[in-house]
């Protein structure tokens, strides 16, 4: 059952990612990215990360992607124009990409811990209670620094979005 779930959602993630790269219209790419994020949330659940799966759906697939769609529609982004370079790019990029993936995959399979298997339900340390305890004890300082980072990001977005710049 584990393998079936993994293969299904890994397949959906890869197909959506390929669609993201191939589509010329940004709206189609954004919707494929939502598909990737949703299937990754299921994979996080399989790996025992209940909290991180929920955050993935709420923050990434919810908030961040809505922001993207909002900007795409606000700017009325159109599909990319194809140029004479486009076909040449495809001929160069696809073999390069395949070689890179095969190299990476062989390296990973060679170096991955031997006999390491993922079985659903064996690790439940990613629950909200455990993540919260780690976040507010061991990682308290980074967590507080994050609030400053977000404050600066808000200020930056407000300054950049003003009329005069």
């Amino acid at each position: 059952m584990d393998a079936l779930l993994f293969l299904t959602f890994a397949g959906i993630a890869v197909l959506c990612a390929i669609n993201l790269v191939l589509q010329t219209h940004p709206i189609s790419s954004a919707l494929s990215l939502v598909g990737v994020m949703g299937s990754l949330a299921v994979l996080y659940l399989l790996l025992g990360g209940a909290f991180i799966a929920a955050v993935q759906l709420i923050v990434y697939a919810g908030a961040v992607m809505v922001l993207f769609l909002f900007v795409i529609m606000l700017l009325n982004a159109q599909a990319e124009r194809t140029t004479s370079k486009s076909a040449m790019r495809a001929w160069v990029s696809v073999p390069l990409l395949f070689t890179f993936v095969i190299l990476l995959a062989s390296l990973i399979i060679q170096r991955a811990p031997a006999g390491a298997a993922v079985k659903f339900g064996e690790f439940t340390g990613g629950s909200v209670a455990n993540v919260g305890r780690a976040l507010f004890t061991t990682y308290l300082l980074p967590f507080e620094v994050t609030s400053i980072l977000i404050l600066i990001a808000i200020l930056g977005a407000v300054v950049l979005a003003r009329k005069e710049i």
Partner: peptide, 19 residues
């Protein structure tokens, strides 16, 4: 198989990163 090897997850991650 009843359980998934860890390397499958890492290979999936590599594929997504390359894309």
């Amino acid at each position: 198989p009843a359980s998934v090897p860890l390397s499958w997850y890492l290979v999936l991650s590599a594929i997504l990163f390359s894309l």
